[in-house]
Design a binder for these strands. Sequence first.
DNA 1: TTTAGCACTCGTCATCCCTGAGTGCTAACT
DNA 2: AGTTAGCACTCAGGGATGACGAGTGCTAAA
Lengths: 353, 353
Amino acid sequence: MELTERKKKILRAIVDCYIQTAEPVGSKAIAAMPGMDVSSATIRNEMADLTEMGYLEQPHTSAGRIPSPAGYRLYVNELMEGYRLSIDETQSLNEAMELKLQEFDKVMTQVGKMVSNWTNLPAYAVTSRVGQLPTVKHFEILSAHTGSFILVVMTNTETVKNKLIKLPLNIQEQDLKLLSAVLNASLTDLSAEQITPEILSKIRKSAGAAADLVPIIVDYTVRILQEQQHSDVYLTGQMKLLGQPEYRDVEKAQEVLSTLDEEVIANLPAPTDGPVQILVGPENIAKELKDTSVVMTRFDIGDGMQGMIGVVGPTRMDYAQVTARLSYFAEGLGRMFGKNELPPAKESDGGTE
Amino acid sequence: MELTERKKKILRAIVDCYIQTAEPVGSKAIAAMPGMDVSSATIRNEMADLTEMGYLEQPHTSAGRIPSPAGYRLYVNELMEGYRLSIDETQSLNEAMELKLQEFDKVMTQVGKMVSNWTNLPAYAVTSRVGQLPTVKHFEILSAHTGSFILVVMTNTETVKNKLIKLPLNIQEQDLKLLSAVLNASLTDLSAEQITPEILSKIRKSAGAAADLVPIIVDYTVRILQEQQHSDVYLTGQMKLLGQPEYRDVEKAQEVLSTLDEEVIANLPAPTDGPVQILVGPENIAKELKDTSVVMTRFDIGDGMQGMIGVVGPTRMDYAQVTARLSYFAEGLGRMFGKNELPPAKESDGGTE
DNA sequence: TTTAGCACTCGTCATCCCTGAGTGCTAACT
DNA sequence: AGTTAGCACTCAGGGATGACGAGTGCTAAA
């Protein structure tokens, strides 16, 4: 059977309608829509065909039709009409970005929250490292006040971390200088795995009076490098799912939400190409998510980091709107992180002890 | 009417039972409990008294009784039997603490998650500053590689933050030294509010070649100070509420969860005295939370910081268990943060640009 | 090829009734 | 005086029943 233009038009109308109402849509409703100039009987025939072709499903005999996964797929691939953001929308988002992202740190949490609020669905934000393993580029040791000093570690990923270390023992300025030099000489360009106990003891030997500091510093350094490697996942707005009619049943919501932990998110396939990727229902990894769809996109943070934002919602979600909002958001983030001067980007946090 | 010992015993039995089953408990069930050596009729009489006294309520005529808020209050105040943590419990918690808190930063998020998992309820963790306003104690400027330098700011709260700043303009080592000296001279011991535009322009005048850097640095400094002031709230495990029978209805769950944002949490009264404070139902601030209780406790982070953890759940929650777990947790955290040497405490994060 | 008409299906909703848990009261018992 | 057995009464919950209506598929006419 052939997928005529009219069939496509009807399918689109059905999906559009179902997305709005979340209820099976009947032939009459479609026939009544503006632009449809055939009778309900004709629609019925076409709907029967579409059902046979696998694009529609019938929950039960005397109900209307709902789109099948294949139907959604077809819809997002070629039928969906682009959603145009209104001026208001873009404006309010711009403001929100300016305002919120000023708060240091926790940026990705904020990003997640904003996406979630804007799409009214659970959202996630992921940062991950692309490219080479993180290594140490430079150490710096500053003496603060008596008995304490600040360790500053810079990695090849342009990240700087620091830690305030307090020690009872008294170490002289020149000892710290020596230590700093030894560390720089020994650990530069090594990744976490390459820092072996042997290296540690070698450093310790040459560190002079500050030898006791070495294990502390090295431990800290290894942690930093390890932390750089693994990607961070921020998941927020899970309760937003409860607003969706398909999750009026707590059981259902729980099933999805309990599988939707950070582990699962981290394993979601990254968008391969194109600005936005959509996973429809059963295309998802976990079978518990077979009735949910994921829309995601990536953006560039710079410095070998890459971000990903996405939302999770019922298969019946407003793909056009979500897609538009998500990509606008990602674009804004890219711009924001890309800025080279005083960006409210990833920020430092204090080390306290 | 007098609250005899027997009445108390019965009330306790009723609350205990209701906490377990979440269903109105009848006279028969109480009479059948071990230790009860009177008949159901007697229990009925006593229950009628307790109802009259305001400790019990009757959902409808032919149902059993449920505790009223006053009943809960009495229960937590004097009736509740201490819950003893099993060896297994303490052990698994200890392990979890060791394991999880190694990950820097996000510590409070982790804490929140752990509390939530352990109590199986939504949990929050708050950090707040006690005592004086944060001020800058010391600046340090390190030149990294060409065109970029690292700004390190130390505050009176023993917090160290840094930021990597890249600039197209070329600034000499001695200019940075000068700038650093000027900054230290001008901004030390000022709080965010005290840093006025006048001071800024004064610094700018004396900063020589690095004058253009001044606004950037000052802005960053102010942000840090401001960030130190406000307390951070981490709320997790909201969906845990769905597991509770009283929230099988999505509407109810949504009502609570939507009011339960970080704003509200931040405004919860801090525990005044004693290790654990319990807010029963209507004692809560927001009227939407009238059917939920909050159990919270505080712990010391050190360095003028104070932490608070709490859980939110139905009025019918296992206060004894939650209280025990929460205080054990807080104790552990206090120990952990109190350690003075290489603690997995608040850590630094990288500044990237 | 389209459309009107019509019989048929089946989920939803309101109604009704039954059942059983639980109560309050009274009268007998200790 | 306090306790207990007995009993009538109340009322929420759960199934059964039937009317209703939205929606379908088919047929025959346009």
